[in-house]
Amino acid sequence: MSNDRPISATKAVRYSDGCHEAAAARVGYGPRMVSGSADYGQAPTPSNIEGVLLLVVVFTAELVPEVRHTLTAAVARAGLSGDEGEDFVLAVHELVTNAVRHGGGSGELRLHRQPGRLTCQVRDHGGGTSADVPALPNANVPGQRGLWLAHHLTGGLTLDTSPHGLTATVSADLCPPDEP
């Protein structure tokens, strides 16, 4: 339904890092480079993200740890490591966890590399989820931190609801070694 809608340009300003702000300004809207023909095992949903498709995973609850490990390796291979790699993995892990808990028990993860940036999109099959990022609850409150973490750790979480479920997207800026 909203699959042809271009992804929102999320805020990428984080940690006042000059390199990352420069990278964010260069986010490419170049030619469509989506490749990959994964075997989904269920109806695939067209991607609305430009870039090179690095990873497609269809997951259920029991696969959550394995998805995280696979994503960690893919993110490191793409050049995002250290604390920023861990933050991005946790952000995506929270979206995956949200999908299995509140989004119908399963979902699909797609990791793309664009010029200077990694973008991960998690789609679930839940209905009626609010498209607002919740505020951080008081430390005394047990729950409700998953989407806040995904938002805070990446500097920008985009949520799109449709009759088919929720699509959550986060990005992280890559710092190319040959940055002038």
Binding site: P142, G143, R145, G146
Partner: peptide, 11 residues
Amino acid sequence: FIDSTVISVLV
């Protein structure tokens, strides 16, 4: 590694 579900249990 911990996530938001672990924080919920700890709180």
